[in-house]
């Protein structure tokens, strides 16, 4: 549906601007990304408002997205699979962040997340997919540095939130970062592939 809509809008834009077929394909690709993200974001905002976990879910999402932007990670094969998994994952993390946790436990989890994250970034970032892989070593190193900087930035934010005794928000930042980091590892790839298969079977069974 999103792909079809993106293509229709791209063709209309192409006709208006009188551009060639290649340009229309680029329009369709860009529109597919924008429309896909818009639908996902709208659904996430609505559901988190209904479940009363808006703030923690949004913090989770920002931490997740910022690390993913530079670190990469696994992608699912279908848009609807992606929509279901990502919305469910971020909502679950947002909800989990609201549980009562002591400041000591949170400090330990944050420290572990920083150490584990550093290892994951050095070992696996940038995590590519079949459709997109970064092979140039200089670019790979640059992506690692950027991802590491984002991880440090989130650790500082978490530390600040802990000192302010804003436990739920600090926990949300840690969970969002951890969620993104797990999807960079080979185990994250395996789990996503298994989920993809289950969703495909379920989807076929429903039709």
């Amino acid at each position: 549906m999103i792909k079809g809509l993106a293509q229709r809008i791209a063709i209309t834009m192409g006709a208006q601007l009188q551009v060639d077929r290649n340009r229309v394909e680029i329009f369709a690709y860009g529109l597919e990304i924008i429309l896909g993200a818009l639908v996902q974001l709208t659904l996430l905002i609505l559901l988190s408002l209904i479940m009363d976990v808006f703030i923690t879910t949004m913090i989770c999402m920002i931490a997740f997205a910022s690390l993913r932007y530079f670190g990469g990670g696994v992608h699912l094969n279908t848009y609807y699979g992606c929509l279901t998994v990502s919305v469910f994952l971020l909502m679950a993390l947002g909800k989990l962040a609201t549980i009562d946790i002591s400041l000591e436990a949170l400090t330990v989890i944050s420290t572990l997340a920083l150490l584990m994250g550093t290892f994951i970034i050095i070992r696996w970032v940038p995590a590519g997919t079949e459709k997109k892989q970064i092979k140039d070593e200089a670019t790979r190193l640059w992506q690692r540095k950027k991802a590491l900087l984002i991880l440090i930035m989130w650790s500082v934010i978490t530390l600040f939130l802990i000192t302010q005794k804003s436990t739920a928000n600090a926990f949300a930042a840690v969970l969002g970062a951890l969620g993104s980091l797990v999807l960079i590892t080979p185990w994250g790839y395996r789990a996503a592939k298994a989920l993809d298969n289950i969703l495909n079977i379920t989807w076929k069974g429903c039709r």
Partner: peptide, 26 residues
Amino acid sequence: VVFVAYTGVSPNSWFILYEPDIPESL
């Protein structure tokens, strides 16, 4: 749209889990 499309093929990745097929021209 063109800006988003170009960032889509850059080393950076959009946060969505789904990745559309990259057009040949890009």
